[in-house]
Design a protein around this nucleic acid. Structure first.
Length: 217
DNA sequence: ACATGGATTCGCT
DNA sequence: GCGAATCCATGTT
């Protein structure tokens, strides 16, 4: 099998290039239960210290320091005391950019994902269970132990390009009626939940697959 | 030390 | 459409 895992060169570019290109890629999570995976259908770009919606807006802190490091590392944080949000760091070192993964179209390990959600505190929905940044973290059992993990060199979470992937596992998944090879259109819109961010609230830095029913909202 | 509020989700009105 | 759940990083005293 050829290596279809996205490498550091993919992430080591400006976040406004990486965020839309992640659409259609497969986020894969290997757990004790088995493999859980989903197609990325919604992302948001957070664009450095200047972007008043970005956690780096006030400079480097204990929480956001990973954003200043190498591309491909994971920035995950607790929000509202009960959910995690999962980001991948982009750009060169010292440039604090990241992509928030906001929704997945379920691909594999769907029963494991349901189980994780039912076991998780407030998230009880067992449909649309990867729709929304907090829910997809619960579904994939992603927590703070993933902080700073290198997604290009991890054995428990990575991103695959389905156009390059010839593994039996993904072929099986794609034979279930979900086609990865359909062309799709990318829509841009305003980012969710950042009304405090002055002029940056209106930037069209949310990227979604047009008409995909697993996009949030 | 302390107060604040958030890149969310759900359930009820 | 709105309030609650629930925690801790961050900014302020």
């Amino acid at each position: 099998m050829q290596n279809s895992k996205l490498d550091r060169t993919f992430f080591e570019r400006p976040v406004l290039e990486v965020a839309p290109e992640l659409l259609g890629k497969i986020l894969v999570r290997k757990t004790d239960q088995g493999i859980i995976s989903g197609k990325i259908v919604e992302t948001e770009a957070y664009v450095g210290e200047e972007d008043l919606a970005c956690h780096a807006r006030n400079g480097k802190t204990e929480r956001n320091k990973v954003m200043y490091g190498a591309a491909g590392h994971i920035y995950i944080y607790l929000i509202y005391g009960m959910y995690y949000n999962f980001n991948i760091v982009t750009a060169k070192e010292h440039v604090p950019e990241a992509v928030l993964i906001r929704a997945l179209e379920p691909v594999g390990g769907i029963e494991f994902a349901r189980e994780n959600l039912r076991n998780f505190g407030r998230v009880r929905s067992d449909k649309d269970f990867m729709k929304g940044p907090g829910k997809l973290c619960a579904a994939l059992n992603l927590d703070k132990t993933f902080y700073d993990e290198d997604i290009t060199d991890s054995d428990r979470v990575w991103v695959e390009d389905p156009f390059l992937c010839h593994s039996d596992r993904l072929r099986r998944a794609t034979s279930g009626g979900i086609s990865f090879f359909n062309k799709f259109k990318i829509e841009t819109s305003k980012r969710i939940g950042i009304d405090y961010a002055d002029i940056y609230r209106d930037k069209l830095w949310r990227f979604t697959i047009k008409d995909n029913k697993f996009v949030s909202q």
